[in-house]
Design a protein around this nucleic acid. Structure first.
Lengths: 220, 220
DNA sequence: TTGACGACTGCACGCATGTGCACTATTCTC
DNA sequence: GAGAATAGTGCACATGCGTGCAGTCGTCAA
């Protein structure tokens, strides 16, 4: 059990790091808490390290680090602004008018790649080039997440190898041949002749659109 | 445009921080890159600061910080790998014809939420309902990733609270008022009267489209 | 051929910062 | 009333670390 002061010092280290991008020195901690001697701070740092909340690197300036398990334990035991502390992005449910955003009760869960794209097969991601699938909401620059299988059903969006090139298209299987459909009114379906070198690399199970310039999603 | 070495130094600062919890010193940078003089590092730190990739605090040990906009810009221009992320999904680069899929040399990096959506502001995700933004590639059921800020520029896609409801729209700021634009030809822009209860909750920096039943992206 | 520029080296200076050792005051237990 | 634990103070010391200034070496355009 951490004393109230030890807790406040841990919180200070956490806040300081968020704000400045690096941890405080022993003197900065002492200043914050009115400790006249640097050993006042060191005393508490020793406690926090002993209990596994932080790790210290001897002789290195600002050489402390909040451990992941320490952060988790601290926020569980004593609470901490939960939003940024844990890895993962909170998924908000209903956002009521006056309610403070990010309030615990509105969280639906955490965004997690393994939850968002569950698969027992291997997965991989592929950056999409071009707008051939834009009517399916797959834009240039998107990363499609693919479940790696060599068999796909008609109607599924697949990543396929056609000749030398990997391409993302909707698959149509006919009795005699395969047709790849772009999702773009300007483009024609691509018939695949039996002689063509064609292989399904996987089925698209989702996508990630990474952030772009200035946090703005460009107009497309 | 950053030189190759400046890029590698930025990446080193990024990796070092992730690994140790605090930034490197000028000497540690010099050691890593074989620079005999501390001013070798300072030269590059000056460049990185001048171009807005990092912020420095004079006279403070390890007093540098990767700026949020710098991180975003860097990862857009030059890419940033999640070094050794344990549970990531590999991002494939060029997929050559005969080459075995998932071969190491074809990997561009790992899919990592912190790299895909870098932000030092708090982030959250919100499930989109309806097709009002479908021409921007945002479909029903998508999770938009939002950087939580209360100010947004004209042209950005934002999450806003209008009355009781949270909505995703493109923001247009006019001299006298604000207009919210759907990205759907069937819908009209929404003018916001000054009297309306209106608040920007954040800026959309990306999205995640989770897989749906059976690993198939439904036809829309 | 000169001179600007990029990419450094070398070095000393001086404050920043972690550390060791000695000591103190209060509280609690035995 | 002794002893131990908690929560510090005070100070000197050695390094850590950012900074300033001067100088070098290759390249490339004028």
């Amino acid at each position: 059990m951490l004393s109230s002061k030890a807790r406040r010092i841990f919180e200070f280290i956490f806040r300081f790091g968020k704000e400045h991008g690096f941890p405080p020195t022993v003197r900065e901690i002492g200043e914050e808490f009115g400790l006249a001697s640097t050993n006042g701070s060191r005393y508490y740092l020793g406690i926090l390290e002993r209990d596994g909340y932080i790790k210290r690197n001897a002789r290195i300036s600002r050489g402390m680090e909040i451990t992941e398990s320490g952060l988790r334990r601290f926020s569980r035991l004593y609470g901490l602004d939960a939003d940024h502390s844990e890895t993962g992005i909170p998924i908000l449910g209903k956002v009521a008018a006056g309610a403070p955003l990010l309030a615990q009760e509105h969280q639906e869960g955490k965004l997690d790649l393994d939850v968002a794209f569950p698969s027992r097969d291997a997965r991989f991601a592929l950056r999409v080039r071009g707008d051939s699938m834009k009517d399916a909401g797959i834009l240039d620059g998107d990363l499609v997440v693919v479940r790696k299988v060599d068999h796909a059903d008609s109607g599924e969006i697949v990543v396929a190898l056609l000749g030398e090139e990997a391409t993302v298209k909707r698959l149509e299987k006919r009795a005699d041949r395969v047709v790849l459909h772009p999702a773009n009114a300007a483009l024609r379906p691509i018939p695949v002749a039996p002689a063509d070198e064609f292989r399904v690399l996987g089925v698209v199970i989702g996508l990630v659109r990474p952030s772009v310039a200035g946090g703005r999603m460009s107009r497309r």
